[in-house]
Design a protein around this nucleic acid. Structure first.
Lengths: 232, 232
DNA sequence: CGGAAGATTGATCAGTTTCAAGCTCCGTGG
DNA sequence: CCACGGAGCTTGAAACTGATCAATCTTCCG
């Protein structure tokens, strides 16, 4: 009865949010966490549904999204192992603000609201970790709102490619999502994305081969990303 | 030397974030707070500037916004007395994510980063309050992203009017901002907003008189807001 | 009264979506 | 092994929404 508990505690320390916590806290967290596995494609929770807690991802990938009445999907986040989601519902006590679905088969940990708030109430360092997570998320949304309202699609795409290329300035970006999903993430539709990729290719900015995009003219992309995004 | 300190502590308790805190915590907060007054129109901080702390509003109004390269402005938040802003920079340690300017003359309290984190580190209840604030803000952004990417301007306007009309279903919404600002808040420009107001008037949905908007057909607005937003 | 800022209106234009039709890739099953 | 079928991707033409540019009107102060 001891070994599994220890294993589970170790897994918790792989979640950045909990990484720095002292052993006893981790064990307390292990005590309230409920494992859950979800097959690919399955909905995890829906917008408006009562928020009984949040999730941490051990393996797999989760997308958080909104749907328009006509069915168009706007992806808000794509979360990978080590990240948490659904935590907003924990602190506002209202329903989940968007839908969540497993992109691939997932193994998750569920942290029930009441129990978790109990832990946090007595542990400011855990609370500080949560504050950092939420702050980073707010920062991301701030940029997203800016992009959606102030930039056109080429600008958003350019910014996104540069972002994925990272500080290491990778020459080739490997998309680990379908172009349909990339479109949903950028707030547009696959047709438009396709056209823009083609145009950028013709202008010698990028070269696409399947789900691999080579960045040929970084400076050009940077111009497009920062000046709002018309490709001349 | 005593009286002003007490006054200032009392003022702190008017800020919802701090409202429930015990007296000694409030006094500690008073100890680190720096009063600051800002004339109308003046910039408070700029995007990217190092975030040395956050602000609470005692009087006045503050807008948080982004600018496009061409100068178009997207308002992210409008904050009123009792609210705080700039707190994301406190927890990420990076620069402010957007610009802040005084809409009207403001009196503010500034809470320096280090000192505030010190307080929060020892006080989970204060941290919980911050978590609630950030969560509400995230929820608002979630809706904003949804609006911007999934709804057209009439839909955003309809949703906004219903929101301002509130749960009490006020018949008349008194805009306390210029139409130019409302446009910036909705992610559009004054011309477009003006046209849509006119069209909605012609359709008998609303009647506008200066900065007062009467809601004539609530159900109609609800349809537009939820179905994405074409007015037939 | 004059003037400036905000608001409205019209004409035009660019960018994006929509609709529709091919196309490519790939796994399945004959 | 190859043909079939489907999902995702691409491309084209047309429709639409919102932005831009320009002109006029209103409001509200000094």
């Amino acid at each position: 009865m001891d070994k599994p508990a220890i294993d589970r505690t170790d897994r918790l320390s792989l979640i950045p949010l909990f990484a720095g916590l002292p052993r006893p806290h981790l064990e307390a967290l292990t005590g309230i966490a409920v494992p859950r596995t979800v097959p690919a494609g399955r909905r995890i929770f829906s917008e408006g549904e009562e928020g009984r807690g949040f999730y941490a991802i051990l393996t797999g990938r989760v997308k958080i999204f909104k749907l328009s009445p006509e069915g168009k999907e706007q992806i808000l986040h794509l979360f990978s192992p080590g990240e948490i989601f659904g935590e907003v519902a924990v602190f506002t006590g209202q329903g989940y603000p968007a839908h969540a679905a497993a992109e691939r088969a997932c193994s998750l940990l569920f942290f029930p609201r009441e129990a978790f708030v109990g832990l946090i109430r007595g542990d400011a360092s855990l609370a500080l970790g949560m504050l950092a997570v939420l702050s980073v998320r707010l920062r991301r949304f701030t940029r997203m709102v800016e992009d959606l309202s102030l930039k056109e699609v080429p600008g958003r795409l350019a910014a996104h490619l540069l972002y994925r290329s990272g500080a290491e300035k990778k020459e080739v970006v490997e998309l680990d999502l379908s172009k349909t999903q990339l479109a949903a993430l950028l707030g547009t539709i696959p047709e438009t994305l396709s056209r823009i990729l083609t145009r950028m290719g013709r202008r010698g900015l990028i070269r696409t081969q399947g789900s691999r995009i080579a960045i040929l003219d970084r400076a050009g992309l940077e111009t497009i990303a920062s000046e709002g995004g018309k490709l001349p």
